[in-house]
Simulated assay, not measured.
Amino acid sequence: MDSPTGSIRRPGPPLLKRERYVYTYNLLAPGTPLQFLISVEPLTGKYSQGRYTFQLSFKTNGIERNLCEPIVFTLHVDPRSLDFAVFIFPGKSSIPVGSLYSLRVWLRVNGIDHRLFSDDELWVGKDLDFHSIADASFVRLKSVDSKSQVYHGFAGRALVTFTCRWHHLSDNLYNYSLDYEANGVGANLFEDLQLRIDGDPRAVTFLIYCVPISSIPAGSSHRIRVWLKSLVNLSASTPSALPFHDSYIYQRIWKSDNFKIGARLDFEAMSNKTIMGFSAGAPVTVETSVPLPLPRTPQRDIGASSHFVPEKAQRGYQ
């Protein structure tokens, strides 16, 4: 149909429809309902015998995130009628107690079992006792706006600001990142953490803490842990749903045992054989010349050129 200006409105390119099949398995860890979703997607985008991508995600208390790496299997059976064995068991000793599990996911087809996913670092729990962690230094939430949360805390004697930012991707999918800054210098800790959140992303907060590690110089090395913290919506029928009682579910999303930062570190006390360097003065400014990219030459519209002779006329065709 012609538009009011006389131009023809052309339809956009056709959308490629893809399909995938999502299997859901529920289980109950001590006091914590967990949900595992297994996505089975054909590489061709449509149902057929052939190669399929299996992907695992984990959901608790309205927050979903991916676990493990996707894996590809060739299926000669109906992908819409698969059976899985999904189970967890307590991991090795953990602090806080009762927060670590091992996860296994197997595909069961015609009497044969194929292991798909394995994770020995599933950290999750309800109302965990973080104060049992010796020498832990916890950050405090200072401010929240529509796209970020700011936390203040100490790593050793260094005051550190942690800023968590999120970006809305689609529907209830958000991309999270975490940066730190101390007295004008900072860096990124992680980025591209994608979470599906049922509700307001501002309601999801973070529990961040540092634990000192024996190091030289003293106070220069720390373990850092980052957990998601979400409030459990207790119903009136729940026995523990008292007006003054808040219950939270935690899940660990990131860790590092190599967080190097400190304040007023005594480098000269490291060893009596230490030889310290000294400054040679102000920095030297070095300038380099980088060629600018050439502007793209606009292509002439050959068909609109008045002096261009059509190909048939050039060859003597009329």
Rank of each mutant, 00 (worst) to 15 (best):
L193Q: 08
D127H: 02
D200R: 00
W123M: 06
V139P: 01
V144N: 10
R202Q: 12
L141R: 13
N172C: 07
D171A: 15
N172L: 07
D127A: 06
F162H: 01
N175V: 13
G153E: 13
P201L: 13
E121R: 07
H168D: 08
D129A: 10
G184E: 10
L189D: 05
L141F: 09
L159A: 12
Y176T: 00
S177E: 12
E181M: 11
S177H: 09
V150T: 05
Y151A: 08
D135R: 05
F206C: 03
T163G: 03
A136M: 10
A203P: 00
K147C: 02
E181S: 10
D129V: 06
V185I: 14
K142D: 02
G125R: 14
Q149I: 02
Y180S: 01
P201K: 06
G199W: 02
S132Y: 02
A155Q: 08
V144Y: 09
Q149V: 03
L173G: 06
L178E: 04
I208S: 14
L207Y: 14
G156K: 11
N175K: 12
D135V: 05
L128E: 05
T161D: 04
D135G: 01
D200F: 00
L128N: 07
N172F: 07
D171L: 15
K126G: 09
S177I: 06
I197R: 05
S146I: 09
P201V: 11
L169G: 04
A134F: 11
F138C: 02
S132M: 14
C164L: 08
R202D: 08
K142M: 09
D198R: 06
D200K: 01
N172D: 03
H152I: 00
S137C: 10
K126M: 13
Y180C: 01
S143N: 15
F117E: 12
S146Y: 15
L195I: 01
S148E: 10
A155P: 12
S143T: 06
A134M: 10
Y174S: 04
G199A: 01
D200Y: 00
R165V: 04
L116I: 04
G186N: 04
F154W: 14
F190G: 08
T163I: 06
A134H: 10
V160G: 12
L195C: 04
S148G: 03
F138L: 03
G153C: 12
A187M: 09
E121N: 12
D120R: 09
V204W: 02
H131I: 09
F138Q: 13
H131Y: 05
D145R: 12
A158P: 03
W123D: 01
L169R: 09
H131W: 05
F190P: 00
G153M: 13
E121D: 15
I197M: 08
D145A: 07
L193I: 01
A134R: 10
D171R: 15
H167N: 09
R202P: 02
L195E: 02
D145G: 04
V204D: 01
R140D: 02
L189F: 07
A136T: 04
H167R: 12
D129W: 14
C164A: 13
S132K: 06
L207Q: 14
F138R: 15
V139T: 09
R202E: 13
D127E: 11
V185K: 11
K147L: 03
S118L: 12
S132E: 03
D135A: 11
K147D: 01
D119L: 13
I133G: 14
W166Y: 10
E191Y: 06
L178P: 02
Q149D: 07
D127V: 00
